[in-house]
């Protein structure tokens, strides 16, 4: 351990503001990247499930089996 007390650790020899600002920002960005994917995935399945239910109920026309992307085809 490079510090003797918790206070030393927080103050960082007077550079605490800079060090903690850099670390907290980076951690926020990293966690944000992880959460963004998880939330988008959940949202996708929620919406897709709702669509499937409406299709089963016959309130919307079935799109059928589409390829989705124009880039499909033999390479």
């Amino acid at each position: 351990m490079s510090f003797h007390t918790l206070n030393d650790f927080l103050v960082m020899g007077g550079h605490g503001l800079y060090v903690w600002l850099a670390y907290l920002t980076t951690i926020t960005v990293v966690v944000g990247n992880v959460l963004a994917v998880q939330m988008a995935r959940r949202r996708y399945f929620r919406q897709a499930r709702a669509l499937e239910r409406r299709l089963a109920g016959g309130t919307v026309a079935d799109p059928g089996d589409q390829t989705g992307s124009p880039m499909k085809g033999k390479q």
Binding site: A40, R41, F45, A48, R49, E52, G64, D65, G68
Partner: peptide, 23 residues
């Protein structure tokens, strides 16, 4: 990438089957 695949292929049989399976 998986999310992009799901979105771009949302109308294919396999994605629709996957959605039904998950639900």
């Amino acid at each position: 990438l998986k999310l992009t695949i799901l979105e771009r292929e949302r109308n294919t049989q396999w994605v629709r089957a996957l959605v039904r399976e998950v639900s």
